[in-house]
């Protein structure tokens, strides 16, 4: 990862998002520190995906502020965070061209694009799939390619919206290994997940959400050992909340 002025911490202050007068998330106060893997936990409709989309700029908050430490985008002229979606969005092109397209969109020149694409395919063990139409790859391969495509943009912070929810255990394990590799490079991850086991394996911090608000945040080990709220206790016990 490039050494540049960090865009982190990312701060949410009183953030809310409403549609048609209905609050989908409200009163979000949160700080995302550098180097952590933050897992957003919570039942369906808790607001995890909306929080990620607000942070990534795909949605504009109805209330409150979202601030980046270094004035995101000002330090390099391009976005320093990337996002991987639950269902990978694959362009109707080869795996190789999906990578070059993202790099071209980021303004990477032709020569550097070629080199970075080759490096990315190698790094994520996708070289043998380079010429294959991306949409014909398996679900696991597509998600690997989506993460590789995001990595190629050299993000300091990577948002992942339930990246393994549609994958089998073997593919899930591969993705988790990839994510562990990204944190080892010093990248910060923020991921929504339903999978408590995955959260235990990957998270250093937990943000527990329910019904559009943040209920509890803290170190993952503490959250799983001694949840502070009754909602979190019920959620960890697999009960309806």
């Amino acid at each position: 990862m490039r050494e540049t002025t960090s865009i982190l911490p990312l701060r949410f202050e009183g953030v809310g998002f409403s549609v048609g007068g209905q609050d989908l998330v409200r009163d979000l106060d949160l700080t995302v520190e550098r180097g952590h893997t933050t897992v957003l936990l919570g039942p369906n409709g808790a607001g995890k995906s909306i929080l990620l989309r607000l942070a990534h700029g795909l949605l504009a908050p109805s209330r409150g502020r979202i601030d980046w430490a270094a004035g995101e985008g000002e330090t390099t002229g391009r976005r320093r965070h990337a996002m991987v979606f639950q269902k990978p969005v694959m362009l109707r092109r080869s795996a190789h061209d999906n990578l070059t397209h993202a790099l071209a969109a980021a303004g990477v020149g032709w020569r550097a694009r070629r080199a970075k694409t080759a490096e990315t395919l190698e790094r994520f063990r996708l070289a043998h799939l380079a010429g294959r139409p991306a949409r014909l790859l398996s679900g696991g391969e597509q998600q690997r390619l989506a993460i590789a495509r995001a990595w190629a943009l050299d993000p300091e912070l990577l948002f992942l919206d339930e990246p393994t929810s549609q994958l089998d255990p073997a593919a899930t394990r591969t993705i988790e290994e990839m994510l562990t590799g990204l944190t080892a490079e010093g990248r910060t991850l923020m991921m929504a997940s339903h999978d408590l086991g995955q959260a235990r394996r990957l998270a250093t911090r937990i943000v527990f959400m329910n019904r559009g608000r943040i209920v509890e945040t803290g170190p993952a080990a503490v959250f799983f050992a001694r949840p502070r709220t009754e909602e979190a206790v019920h959620f960890l016990d697999g009960e309806l909340i």
Binding site: H56, L58, R78, R79, A82, M83, F85, V89, L91, H101, A102, A105, A106, L153
Partner: peptide, 20 residues
């Protein structure tokens, strides 16, 4: 509707998204 999230995620919006 299929590509929107990804293209907006890499800042390809408006006229910039049209060629893709």
């Amino acid at each position: 509707s299929e590509y929107g999230d990804h293209l907006r995620s890499i800042d390809l919006v408006g006229a910039r998204a049209v060629p893709t």
